[in-house]
Design a protein around this nucleic acid. Structure first.
Length: 410
DNA sequence: TCTGGGGTCCTAGGACCC
DNA sequence: TCTGGGGTCCTAGGACCC
């Protein structure tokens, strides 16, 4: 059996842990640049605020309904996520961190109803971290996800559902639209509907040959998992990343190389930092720039990838390649609104050292000495980031900065 | 004024090889 | 006249996810 543990309205819940006065009140969290609404409390959902709505379109509603608004605070959410995952480790030897707010737990071959276990998980996570979670149990990841979905949407149960306890499962699946199934996106859903398949039950009972023909091995695996056949096992831990991207929409549009270099250098440096935390080296550096699709004028999206001779984690090298790529990318007459750097073809430091004794040729020791790099002040640190856009509603980094610790009044 | 950011996997087709 | 067949690797792009 597999459990899918999903934090409820995770970003909002993180904010509420330190703002108990907001319990029961409408709260939303905005994306980077305060652009879109990406998390909503149930009260905010009830007001009809949709996921992904641009903040400026919702402004009137947010104000009239006195919705509390937060900019996203990833220092806080990342740390809270770590705490939740650590707590889940007490319930299963195999916890797969699927995303910042979700984990799959291998629950072994238990034949009894896991609902009590689920309740125990819920209450411990809530007590230890302050975060409420929903839990679905099923024989496959897809079915655990489905159980979790039923918990959240249906009135089947509050908080925890072991799919095996659902007596009229066929009826329930018949009432579930295919879009609600994990792995069925808009494209697949519309193809399915066009051929008369509307419900999860119909998809589960579909014809293998047709599924494979239409949706390939991914579709076939998905349908098999709906039938209870494991195609996608729980893989404990966090998979090492294969690439690291840092990208941002700028506060304003910029066009020249001189203007674009500092942010792109900063993105490369930040990506390099993240990558080093994972103990990886980059085999390629990709830069992309993008115009503003919402405004008239010449439009474009372009990308250039450069490959260092030897995989490297050296910030100066990576910044250099990123700037090289950028200069190949720029076209005069275009105004760019967004740019990003992806470090790809990542490989573990150790592997390279073992197979390639030339690691020193990248000109860097690893980890790099403190204060390395000539242009440190130039491309490091979010604080000194003039392209950093709006985050007017940022909460304190309660758990990761001494100066921002919450204060308890005795 | 204002429209996020960061990932993974698969497939088709081209290049190349024997 | 007739123009193999099988394989690998790489890449771009699609689709999906949170």
């Amino acid at each position: 059996m597999i459990a899918l543990v999903d934090c409820n309205n995770f970003y909002v819940s993180c904010e509420r842990v330190f703002r108990p006065d907001l319990a029961g009140r409408p709260v939303v969290v905005l994306s980077n640049n305060d652009g879109c609404i990406i998390a909503r409390s149930p009260e905010a959902k009830a007001l009809g605020i949709e996921m992904g709505t641009p903040a400026f379109k919702a402004r009137a509603l947010l104000e009239s309904q006195k919705v509390t608004v937060f900019s996203s605070n990833y220092a806080l959410y990342g740390d809270m996520s770590r705490r939740v995952m650590a707590t889940l480790g007490g319930f299963s030897p195999a916890v797969e961190e699927y995303s910042i707010d979700e984990a799959f737990l291998d629950m072994g071959d238990e034949t009894y109803d896991l609902t009590p276990t689920g309740n125990a998980i819920r209450s411990r996570v809530l007590r230890w971290t302050g975060i409420p979670v929903s839990i679905g149990f099923g024989p496959t990841k897809t079915l655990a996800k489905l159980a979790n979905r039923l918990v959240k949407t249906g009135a089947i149960h509050s908080g925890v559902l072991d799919l095996r306890t659902v007596e009229n499962l066929d009826d329930v699946l018949a009432g579930m639209p295919v879009d609600d199934i994990w792995g069925v996106g808009p494209n697949v859903a519309s193809t399915l509907r066009r051929t008369g398949i509307h419900s999860a039950r119909q998809l589960r009972d579909g014809d293998d040959f047709w599924i494979k023909h239409e949706f390939g091995v991914v579709g076939l695996a998905l349908v098999s998992e709906l039938r209870g056949i494991v195609c996608n096992a729980v893989r404990p831990g966090r998979e090492p990343r294969k690439e690291v991207t840092v990208s941002r929409t700028f506060g304003s549009e910029i066009g020249t190389l001189d203007e674009l270099k500092p942010p792109v250098a900063a993105f490369a440096a930040r990506a390099a930092g993240r990558m080093r935390q994972d103990g990886m080296l980059a085999g390629e550096v990709t830069v992309f720039i993008e115009t503003n699709e919402y405004k008239p004028g010449p439009q474009g999206f372009s990308t250039v990838t450069l490959k260092p001779e030897v995989a490297t984690a050296n910030t100066d090298d990576l910044v250099f390649y990123a700037c090289e790529a950028l200069s190949k990318l720029i076209r005069s007459g275009y105004k760019y609104r967004k740019a990003g750097v992806t470090l790809g073809d990542l490989c573990p430091v150790r592997m390279v050292q073992e197979t390639l004794f030339t690691v020193g040729a990248s000109g860097d020791s690893w980890p790099p000495p403190a204060g390395f790099g000539l242009k440190q002040q130039y491309y490091s640190g979010e604080a000194a980031d003039p392209w950093q856009q709006r985050n007017r509603h940022l909460s304190p980094r309660y758990t990761t900065q001494w100066a921002e610790l919450p204060i308890a009044n005795a």
